[in-house]
Design a protein around this nucleic acid. Structure first.
Length: 1056
RNA sequence: GGGCCCGUAGCUUAGCCAGGUUGAGCGCACGGCUGAUAACCGUGAGGUCCUGCGUUCGAAUCGCAGCGGGCCCA
């Protein structure tokens, strides 16, 4: 039986109840099982990093996923949706190091790698559990019980296998390259792990003394003085013009070489007082010039090298136009070195301290060295200018240490060889929005470089590469099984460091093979998620059935991240994209559009929001506020508005329940067919609207336009249900008998809610479940366990009537206009009006009035409707004529006054008729004159106590003239309203009877009210009722009122 | 500095693809309704459609340049 719900909407209570229900009944599992064997939908969860706490962005991410999956499930899809966790890598290492108070890798080594790795694992698992709970409070359904975890051996195997594919396809490369390096973490980091932030650095100009000419210097510029010890060359642009100048400063003269266009600015920086250009030359002529390393006296190693000027296209016309080249410390520099056989001299160690090769600087930290290098240069008179600059500089994404560039030996995936195929593949992927793939992702891939996948760390998937200590040949292992076949390995050995490090292989040459110590870049972990989540290569069957993914969705930062890493790994492994469609979503920003960050203190925690408004409100807010791919400016007020909307939905839902419960309404007994003959126009209208809403939600969801889907639903709830349908049917629900008109309303409302709870299910899963539980499951014990197991409602074409929907829209416009007009004559809606008059502009509006006459009368509280023919005027309108002076003057000159008087005195109707067909001859004091239509302005004269208002399809008049009958009804309803108010105050049951004593301090009004004594008694359920001028207004509750200036005293009591 | 996206009322947004009087919600002011009532409805005020230039009879919409914000990159 349907139950009354008396409470206000209480999200927390409902959500807790629903969560318990889901858990007790294993609802998630049963829903997924329910769909086994239906159309497959393979979803891959982008694994969040196990930081221990979710934030608004990850919450939004999972909410999008959940809503789409729920929708897909209801639409008959068999879903794979293992939740994923990204659990390896530096972030956790850094965190654990922090807990243990470590400062460098040495601390880890002395603590013991095994203990350290176990700490990391423990930490990751704990964080995962905490985050799972947090995600669950959002009501998100993924396979939380059996998630994929990158730290699991099965998962590690997927990465190993993939690397072996790369090796076998000659896509794996090892070599010395310049990489981003974190001197604190002592490891290479990927481009995508570099965070750019503002930083202030030295900005210095240095003179390099040329070898063959005295007192002649090439001027270079740098922001990293510490790289000067590694300087090996200077680069100039072949297309620039360079100048050799004599520069003067404090009576000293020297000869400087730099780009011609930059001479003035450089000399200004160096505070030179005068200069003269000695010679200009193209860059090509500068090339080949030899110079002396500025610190060669401090760095003996540098005396072994020649230093020259080379040509390079990347040199820009900034600073001096001559670029300091240190092949050991820069990507471009490295390339210049490679092209010209310059050694990549790199006197800096992995910890950011100079090595023995740096001579004087050995052991010094490079950041501390900046100052020393500058002092040394200055002492030698080689520091031309010394300033600072604030610029964007890369930092380690985890420990925020400024990165350096180091030439080191690393492992790479040759993206260059795959690029063309990748570009072809992404065209086959369905991108939402389209530009996410066709523009943004394509641009990124076009600029992509080889992918450095090795890290010199501990907590990660070990690279499955063994190298012979004798002959250096390599062995790449793809699976645990393979490893067991070629080595004596305990089958329970965990595939992490340090355990795998202990495994030694035997080379074909007889030499001993040891694993190279690196672990994978953590991005490689998640890159293999689409097959790792299917346990491939451990199992093949699932992979064959499901792969590739039907759908993934992540934020736009993942363009360079997971969208890319997955594509790269999948091209290596299978030569095709691992996903068929991608929805790129936005970022959550604070209410002013700034990034949320701890340092700005503007972070909004999901749990705070949930505690205040509930998960369904949060879900609806983040989904509806903007298009998925746009950034979300998180705004509490907007969230509160959405919450209010859901509250209205709740009120709409609970409104009919007391009546239904009272009448023991059973939808299994009262069929739609049975009530169909009694349906009113508005009933058919709301049923049609429901169908249109389903259709529109479908259309939106097809394109992942979740915001449109929810806005459609909210508008339906607010506009159609709350503001219109419920208002229209209220009186019908108060009928007491087994009235078929009332049963029709019940049935219609029931069908609307039965559909509505399914339509909101993907977005407000808790509220949907609550509604479903009461109105469906309480009625039908055989109904599906949960609303989420139901089939998505199918549009019933027989209920759709778009013509009726349009007519109702027109009627609503008229009611609004009528309300506007009433306000002009200050006639409250409670007071009926004699009639309203409609002047329709077109046939459709005319038909709408004909068809929905009752609705219109009801909602305008009018006794009658006069419907005028299309494009005709109401015949009771008077006409007012006024002279148009500017047209009359020029024609009649001095007689104009007489004409004006004539028009003012004339019968406006006659005048209008006369002018209708053009000119009109009139007689002015015996003389005839000719009036033309421009000379007279006609305006409608509205009868008194009639107000007018326009609406989009015409004009409406409200005749508010009072009659005794109307006054009687008006006052009666005023009295009724106040008694109802008092009943409410006494908290009486809806069907409880009362005694009422009413004293009205005006005899005429007493008379009017007595006309409707019975009506009042019926409306307020008064058994005994005394109304009069001399009544003693007594009762349990007595109140004094003022109605339209008349004092009214009312006393009521419960009848027994 | 480059790529992509965004910029419309105090706030959140629709309209932009396919050019033809900027439309809503929140908030505000005023009014109404009254057994959904801690709810609900109406009316009103409030817009240099980021700026400038161009295309066009006509630009929020198309193009170019710039400004501001976001993500990504250098």
């Amino acid at each position: 039986m349907i139950k009354e719900v008396t409470d206000q909407y209480n999200a927390q209570k409902i959500e807790e109840k629903v969560h318990n229900f889901w858990e007790d009944n294993q609802a998630y599992m049963k829903v997924r099982e329910h769909r086994r064997g239906e159309k497959r939908f393979f979803f891959v969860d982008g694994p969040p990093y196990t930081t221990g706490h979710i934030h608004l962005g990850t919450a939004w991410n999972k909410i999008i996923k959940d809503s789409i999956l729920r929708y897909k499930s209801m639409n008959g899809h068999d879903i794979v949706d293992r939740a994923g966790w990204d659990m390896h890598g530096l972030p956790i290492e850094v965190k654990v190091e922090g807990v243990l108070g470590f400062e460098s890798k040495k601390d880890i080594e002395s603590y013991g790698v095994e203990k350290f790795v176990n700490k990391c694992k423990e930490f990751a698992l704990k964080q995962k559990d905490a985050m799972t709970d947090q995600f669950r409070t959002l009501g998100t359904w993924l396979d939380w019980e059996d998630p994929y975890m990158t730290l699991k051996d099965e998962y590690i195997e997927a990465a190993w296998w993939t690397l072996k594919q790369a090796y076998e396809k000659d896509l794996l490369e090892v070599g010395k390259r310049v990489v981003n390096w974190c001197p604190r973490c002592e490891t290479a980091i990927a481009d995508s792990e570099v965070e750019y932030e503002d930083r202030t650095d030295p900005s210095i100009f240095i003179k390099f003394a040329t070898k063959n000419e005295n007192d002649t210097y090439i001027v270079i510029w740098t922001t990293t003085p510490w790289t000067i010890p590694a300087n090996m060359a200077v680069a100039v642009n072949p297309d620039f013009e360079y100048a050799k100048i004599r520069a003067v400063k404090e009576d000293k003269e020297e000869i400087l070489i730099m780009a011609s266009d930059l001479v003035e600015s450089v000399l200004k920086k160096g505070r030179y007082t005068d200069y003269e250009i000695l010679e200009t030359m193209p860059g090509e002529d500068v090339a080949g010039m030899e110079y002396k390393h500025p610190l060669v006296e401090n760095i003996p190693e540098q005396s072994k090298f020649d230093h020259r000027v080379y040509l390079a296209d990347f040199v820009t016309a900034e600073n001096t136009g001559c670029v300091h080249i240190a092949p050991g410390h820069g990507v471009d520099d490295f390339d210049v070195g490679k092209a010209n056989d310059i050694p990549a001299f790199c006197p800096v160690g992995s910890n950011g301290h100079y090595t023995r090769e740096a001579g004087k600087y050995e052991g010094m930290n490079i950041r501390d060295a900046n100052k020393v290098v500058m002092e040394d240069l200055d002492a030698k008179g080689l520091l031309l200018a010394d300033d600072t600059i604030t610029h964007r500089y890369g930092h380690c994404w985890r420990c925020k240490t400024p990165i350096i560039y180091l030439a080191t030996k690393q492992w790479f995936i040759k993206i260059g060889d795959l690029k063309e195929d990748m570009l072809a593949e992404i065209k086959r992927v369905d991108w939402h929005p389209d530009w996410a793939g066709s523009a943004r992702f394509r641009d990124w891939i076009e600029g992509a470089r080889d992918w450095c996948i090795s890290r010199q760390r501990y907590w990660g998937i070990p690279l499955p590469v063994w190298r012979c200590e004798e002959c250096e040949s390599l062995k790449v292992v793809g699976t645990r099984k393979e490893l067991q076949e070629i080595a004596d390995v305990d089958p329970n050995t965990e595939l992490h460091r340090p355990y795998v490090d202990e495994i030694k292989l035997t080379c074909d040459c007889g030499g001993r093979m040891s694993r190279i110590e690196d672990v994978f870049d953590v991005w490689f972990d998640s890159a293999v998620a689409s097959w790792a989540t299917l346990n491939y290569p451990h199992r093949e069957d699932q992979f064959k059935e499901w792969w590739p993914a039907d759908f993934i969705t992540e934020g736009h930062d993942q363009t360079r991240g997971w969208f890319y890493s997955q594509l790269g790994a999948s091209m290596v492994a299978f030569g095709q994209a691992p996903y068929k469609s991608v929805l790129m979503h936005g970022f959550t920003l604070d209410s002013t559009g700034k990034k949320m960050s701890k340092s700005l203190g503007n972070v909004v925690q999901p749990h705070e929001v949930i505690e205040k408004y509930g998960a369904d409100s949060l879900r609806c807010y983040v989904l509806s506020s903007s298009a998925p791919w746009e950034d979300l400016k998180f705004n509490q007020d907007e969230l509160a508005t959405i919450h209010r909307t859901i509250n209205i939905l709740w009120n709409v839902y609970r409104f009919p329940l007391p009546y239904m419960a009272l009448d023991k309404f059973d939808p299994l007994e009262v069929s739609f067919e049975a009530v169909e003959p009694y349906l009113r126009k508005e009933d058919r209208w709301i049923l049609s609207r429901m169908q249109s809403v389903i259709e529109e939600v479908d259309r939106s969801m097809e394109q992942y336009l979740l915001h449109r889907a929810i806005r459609t639903i909210n508008e339906f709830v607010l506009e159609d249900l709350s503001r219109w349908y419920i208002q229209l049917i209220r009186p019908r629900t108060w009928n007491e008998a087994d009235d078929p008109d009332k049963l029709a309303v019940y049935r219609v409302l029931y069908d609307v809610f039965a559909n509505l709870c399914k339509v909101i299910a993907p977005f407000m899963p808790h509220l949907a479940e609550e509604m479903y539980g009461n109105i469906v499951k309480n009625v039908d014990p055989d109904a599906a366990l949960t609303v989420h197991m139901c089939n998505w409602p199918k549009v019933d074409e027989s209920l759709k009537d778009t013509d009726l929907e349009e007519k109702m829209t027109a009627v609503r416009a008229m009611v609004e206009a009528a309300s506007n007009a009433r306000q002009k004559v200050k006639r409250k809606l409670r007071w009926p009006v004699n009639r309203i008059v409609i002047e329709p502009e077109n046939r459709q509006v005319y038909d709408a009035v004909m068809d929905l006459r009752f609705v219109l009368m009801d909602q305008t509280n009018a006794k009658d409707i006069d419907l005028v023919e299309v494009n005709h005027s109401w015949d009771e309108l008077g006409v007012e004529a006024s002279p148009n002076h500017s047209a009359i003057g020029p024609v009649f000159k001095q007689d104009a006054g007489k004409v004006i008087q004539y028009i003012q005195k004339a019968d406006a109707n006659e005048l209008k008729k006369g002018l209708a067909n053009g000119e009109l001859e009139i007689s002015l004091e015996g003389e005839s004159a000719t009036l033309t239509p421009e000379m007279v302005k006609f305006e409608d004269k509205i009868p008194s106590m009639v107000a007018v208002a326009d609406f989009s399809g015409g004009r409406i008049y409200v005749d508010a003239n009072l009659t005794r009958d109307i006054e009687s009804e008006g006052f009666a309803r005023e009295v009724i309203r106040r008694i109802q108010d008092m009943r409410k105050e006494l908290d009486l049951e809806v069907d409880e009877n009362i005694l009422a004593h009413i004293r009205i301090d005006d005899e005429r009004i007493v008379d009017l009210v007595l006309d409707r004594e019975n009506y009042i008694a019926k409306e307020v359920r008064s058994q005994v009722q005394v109304i009069g001028f001399d009544v003693d207004a007594t009762g349990t509750l007595v109140k004094d009122w003022n109605v339209e200036g008349i004092d009214v005293h009312i006393g009521i009591s419960p009848a027994n």
